[in-house]
């Protein structure tokens, strides 16, 4: 996995709540057998009309707005467990998603793809939406080492939570399988002495 470093970037605001993974990547695009190419269909039904033409009022089609950070409304990534949602977000070029609340499975999937979900307060989130409104040059800085996010328009920062293990994985570019494979003796020991064995 790619190592995660401090990012200062413009950002894309999507002030919609409960953005489910069917919106992030609709099911009909889940037929691929690789992890590539999903970025083109990120938010496909909000981004393109029936003929596949970009809808001008959707933020990803506004050339003024871009960046490595997506800022979205509360309860981002609910619904289906499809990791394709994380692949689509990463494939599009986002490395950070900011929201006041994430669905659990999406959060894990993002972390497993070196995309950092950053939980901020409702006030901080509203301020981010406000800062970028009419001002596409607004930036945020996300510092994983320090666990801080800064709205560079207001100068205000907040700290965010991440468990020490995942933080280390992201900073060093390690994944869980490396860890689990190094732990096989413990798995075999568990199988020998578990409470109840299903066979």
């Amino acid at each position: 996995m790619e190592k995660f470093q401090t990012i200062t970037s413009t950002y894309v605001s999507l002030p919609i709540e409960n953005v489910d993974t069917d919106q992030i990547i609709p099911a009909r695009f889940l037929k691929a057998t690789t992890r590539d190419g999903f970025g083109d269909n990120l938010f496909a039904d909000w981004r393109y009309d029936k003929e596949g033409n970009p809808k001008p009022d959707f933020v990803l089609n506004n050339p003024a707005y871009s960046g490595q950070v997506l800022v979205a409304g509360k309860n981002f990534g609910s619904g289906s467990s499809r990791e394709h949602a994380a692949w689509a977000i990463g494939g599009y070029g986002f490395r950070v998603v900011v929201s006041s609340f994430f669905a659990d499975i999406f959060r894990n999937n993002a972390l497993n793809n070196s995309i950092l979900p950053v939980v901020v307060s409702e006030q901080f989130l509203s301020a981010l939406f406000a800062s970028s409104n009419g001002n596409p040059k607004a930036t945020v800085t996300v510092n994983l080492e320090e666990q801080t996010i800064t709205n560079n328009e207001t100068g205000r920062s907040e700290s965010f939570e991440i468990n020490a293990y995942k933080k280390e994985c992201l900073l060093k570019g390690l994944d869980d399988i490396d860890f689990l494979l190094s732990n096989k003796d413990k798995i075999e020991a568990y199988e020998q002495q578990r409470t109840f064995s299903y066979d």
Partner: peptide, 22 residues
């Protein structure tokens, strides 16, 4: 519970998964 594809790979490789206790 439902898991993502990276986690599917973890289970295939090790019959284990890393999860935060809910």
């Amino acid at each position: 519970f439902g898991i993502g594809t990276s986690e599917v790979e973890m289970v295939l490789a090790s019959q284990c998964i890393l999860q935060t206790r809910p």
